[in-house]
Nucleic acid binder design. Structure first.
Lengths: 199, 199, 199, 199
DNA sequence: CATGAATGAGACTTCATTCAT
DNA sequence: TATGAATGAAGTCTCATTCAT
């Protein structure tokens, strides 16, 4: 600890991930060929195979890295009581987690057709389902379920699609969160929670 | 009379579209090869090319066909005054239009990375933007804009993603619409419109 | 003879030939597809097959039509004595014949690779060889043979490639012919023939 | 030592070029499929694509290699004064250059229809035009221009078409060159240059 | 006299992946 | 830690041709 940084161990793996992420986001997973990644990095395709077993593996590594905040959120959620307050906090935390995890969800979203047949796709979708499951505890009337889903949906897709809208990223995030919490509150027939403070 | 229809005026074009739609939805546009479509139909690849100029053309035909309700909605919307009532009606009609148009949006959503480079992708995205534009008239504070977007988003993605939720399709659609209208109402500082009756 | 023209028998065959000739010259034989010909004519591909057995057949018809002057020349040449005067007349007549036959030779030239494998190619090349044979009677020293070939070559390729040069078509033709005759004259060790009058 | 060379630094690229040249000349560019080239070489089509970006690229490499002598000639010609002596030398050198470059011009000639639509075709044609331009300096009466063109034409097509004629290749080349120089001399109204020594 | 529908063959090209060095 | 060379599978598309109507 506190040791001098070791620039010994090649950072190539890191660089591959960064480059791949950029291309996966901008051109799509399927449309991004290993040749492209290699060329942009100035290495050969074979070099990629030294660091990653397959193309899917690169995506897997990215998923692990970027998805960590969401995984932590899921772990946290599983230990909470299923109260309205928990759900409110869940939305808040999910919204926050998406700040970092957005790119990987973006990739999941825009390449779903491709990922459907990949093992990593399953992994990615499981995370989505898990978050959704935290919100949907037990039985509930259809209207309630739809509301819960809609609230999550707002946060989720809000993070992915509000880019077109003008305005500060963070401001928009908070506004979306506010809407989602309202939907959530309109669901539960308890006394609504106090003032909303996003983030 | 009443005999089985003879494929004289060939319904092959129709059948190609149906088969392609099914495969585009289930396997994705890119992952669906013309060989697959042809094989499932029992014709040769060349036959597809007799009826459609390119693979993209097949998607184009589907887009024209399934997207019509949304196109009509857009045309309608452009002639309405930009009142709250119009916006409510817009959401209602959009929700209804999606009953038919959902598959094509599903394809757009799940293959965005691929469609980004296709002419037809542009066409499809324009429709989305147009609907959004009808809701977003003139300047408005960020919070308002986010709410309008969220309402639309709820209807849109609700139609595409609520399948996982148990319950009658139509019931869920109405429930989602209700949520969307609430978001809309919470935006405008006028007296909210009277009772919600979806559909 | 002198009868009233009969516009009864469809002129489609004629039109196909005209269109095909134009395309064969401008786009090449191989690169011109039957679809193109049909489209430019406003008929279906199948219609072409009503009038011609194969694509090659269309070229065959054109060859017969446009090559007639050269065929007549060959017939004429075979009955002449192998004198210098005959050879001079041969060049003159060949030059004249090319006025009409140029397009078909153009096609032969620019698509030789393709025509090599077609029966019609053989036919076309035979004509070239035949003309050449009329000039090359019996044994002769290499220098003589080369001169004879060069003279013919000048007339032949002159007709096909002088388009780039500015000036009246016919003027250029006569000038080329003059050059060819000079080459011819420089070959024979007899008294050169009198004044050159081209055409 | 002295052992058979190991294809370590792979001479495959070279072999592809050689094989392709042979096939392009004998079967034509268009009619030669990559499958053929690959099969004749005992490699897969994909291997060709490892060494060349496209089919056209293979032709491009051949053009660069074989066309070099002509390119050098053009460079040389541009620095010479436009005298008759220069033009004579030009024809001599062009004739010599064609010894190596003939195959690529052969391909250009026999596949013109195809190459018309290829970038490489433009490149090839430019070389022809450039040589022609060196001969055609400034304005001149039509007769002069035709003679200059004819002289070049003789050398050019002589190199490509005299194969049918019996006799030694080199002998024929010199004989053709003599004819061309005579045409050239008959153009200029100066004292003709002294004895012709080709090569 | 002509069409609509379809076929079989084959073209060029791209991709993820492997392996000896 | 990487590269150069190569592969096998698959993809989209075009073409000349056929045939029942």
């Amino acid at each position: 600890m506190g040791s001098t940084p070791q620039p010994r161990k090649s950072d190539t793996r890191e660089r591959i991930q960064r480059t791949a992420l950029g291309l996966f986001v901008s051109r799509g997973y399927e449309k991004t060929s290993l040749r492209e990644i290699a060329e942009e990095l100035g290495v050969t395709k074979a070099a990629l195979y030294y660091h990653f077993k397959t193309k899917e593996d690169i995506l897997g590594a990215l998923s692990d890295q970027l998805g960590r905040p969401v995984d932590e959120l899921i772990a946290w959620g599983r230990e909470q009581p299923a109260t309205l307050a928990t759900k409110r906090e869940l939305l808040r935390r999910y919204s926050a987690a998406l700040r970092e995890a957005a790119p990987i969800y973006h990739i999941l979203q825009e390449n779903q057709a491709t990922l459907r047949e990949l093992a990593i796709g399953e992994t990615l979708r499981k995370r989505v389902t898990a978050v959704s499951g935290l919100l949907h505890d037990g039985e509930a009337p259809l209207d309630t379920r739809v509301r819960l889903s809609s609230a999550l949906l707002a946060v989720h897709f809000g993070a992915l699609t509000m880019d077109a809208l003008p305005g500060d990223r963070e401001d928009k995030r908070e506004a979306v969160l506010r809407v989602a919490l309202e939907i959530l509150d309109s669901t539960a027939h308890e006394a609504p929670a106090p003032a909303v403070t996003a983030g």
